[in-house]
Amino acid sequence: MSSKHHKIKVGISVGDFNGIGVEIILKALKDKNITDFFTPVIFGSGKLFSYQKNVFKINTTFNYVQSAKEAANGKLNIVNLWKDNVNVDFGTPTEESTKMAIDSLEAATDALMKGEIDVLVTAPINKDEMMKQGFKHAGHTGYFEEKFGKKGLMFLVTEKLKVAVSTHHIPVSEISKNISKQKIKEQVRVLNQSLIEDFCIQKPKIAILGLNPHAGDGGAIGKEEIEIIEPAIKELFNEGILAFGSFPADSFFQPEKYSSFDAVLAMYHDQGLAPFKTLAYEEGVNYTAGLPFIRTSPDHGVAYDIAGKNLADEQSFSEAIFTAIKIFKNRNEYQDLIESRLKPRVLAHDNGIDEDLPEENE
């Protein structure tokens, strides 16, 4: 449904409630006017949120519903998945908190795929504990790829800095085996299309980092740049994608360098995320690009060390909400533009002047 004709429904999964997930959700939604901009739909437990709002002294009223279809505009809606009491043990993952994180994510994803919510914002999870409970993926990205049947790309974004990573949660010793010319080309195509469709950048410029120190130093410190990365860049450029590199990662993240590009593809997790979180920690958003549905999250984890202490900053979570909304609107506008361009037209040649006229039954 077009964002022009209804208030956007933002689904929210709660993550591990013994971390800071519920706290940042409550803080991000505490302004009574927040529902003027979107309709929140939280997938969790009414009793859990009632307990934690008292811990953090946040005066909030919830509307309890059985499904996202019942969510009311102008209210903070909770799809009440768990009706029993929950035991909160701040700072310590438990079987109960892990089970709710899984249930919340699965219910929210199901609602997203059914069109009951428009976008999904996920609070932080504990990947290790979830895998112990039978969750098959080391993070959200792999889960959504399986559910949606399409490859996604981990993409960290702010207004000024956007960084994607080619490999995610794998040991450093495995990185070299998990990059290839074809994989890089496919990822850059996804990145390029996301920048056009989701961020309204007509002709994106994309920087690609080298894998090795000094981008291999001409092959002296590794040959992946010569054999894999730079041939991929050349072929992408020949396709009309403005891909450049490979750039040494140690000197790339200086403002005068990265600001010349619309996005960066790093070769591995920490190569991209370490500088991103240093430069844009509070406002950074994790976005899964390339999927048919929109999912964002804050760029931090469960933060057990500060859980329950009323110290968590909700800015990244708030940014995740409004980034998801912005992308949803951008996608709708892009689709409207494409559909308008594809509408059949007939030409009139009266008086020697060509005019684009709609067909009679258009």
Rank of each mutant, 00 (worst) to 15 (best):
F244P: 08
R341N: 14
K132Q: 08
I170R: 08
G139S: 07
N361G: 11
T296W: 03
N54I: 03
A28R: 03
K83A: 07
Q187P: 07
V165W: 05
G240T: 08
I353G: 02
T109K: 04
L357V: 15
K203W: 09
N87F: 09
G142M: 10
F155A: 09
Q202D: 15
N73H: 02
H349M: 12
A68Q: 05
I175Q: 12
F237R: 15
A263D: 14
K132F: 02
A303W: 02
A232V: 03
F252V: 04
E146Y: 09
S180W: 03
I325K: 03
F293D: 05
N80V: 04
L347V: 13
V86C: 08
T35V: 04
I229M: 08
G245L: 14
E333S: 07
L29M: 04
I58Q: 11
C200N: 14
R345E: 12
E360N: 12
T288L: 14
V264T: 13
R189Q: 15
T167S: 09
H169P: 02
S50E: 15
E333Q: 10
V119E: 04
Q335K: 15
F43T: 00
I42E: 03
V41C: 07
T158P: 05
F199T: 00
F252H: 07
E230P: 00
A348G: 11
F62T: 00
A303P: 07
I8M: 02
H300E: 02
K27P: 00
E224H: 03
P124H: 08
A243F: 12
K343F: 04
I184F: 09
N310F: 01
N33E: 14
F155Y: 15
E146L: 09
K162P: 08
V86S: 12
G240Y: 13
F322E: 03
I228C: 05
E239D: 13
T94S: 15
P231A: 10
Y258G: 05
I233L: 12
P255C: 10
R341H: 10
D16A: 09
K223C: 05
K132E: 06
S340C: 04
K234F: 08
F247V: 07
E23W: 04
I12R: 04
K127E: 07
I327H: 06
K47A: 09
N238L: 15
I353W: 06
I125A: 02
K343I: 07
Q254L: 13
D128L: 11
H269Q: 10
I208E: 11
K69E: 12
E70L: 06
G115P: 07
V172L: 15
A164H: 11
T296I: 06
E129R: 10
E96Y: 09
D198S: 14
I12N: 01
V10D: 02
K9E: 03
F90T: 00
F199K: 07
S176Y: 08
T35I: 01
E355M: 13
E319F: 02
F253K: 01
D313H: 00
S316T: 01
I321L: 13
G240D: 12
S297L: 06
Y268I: 03
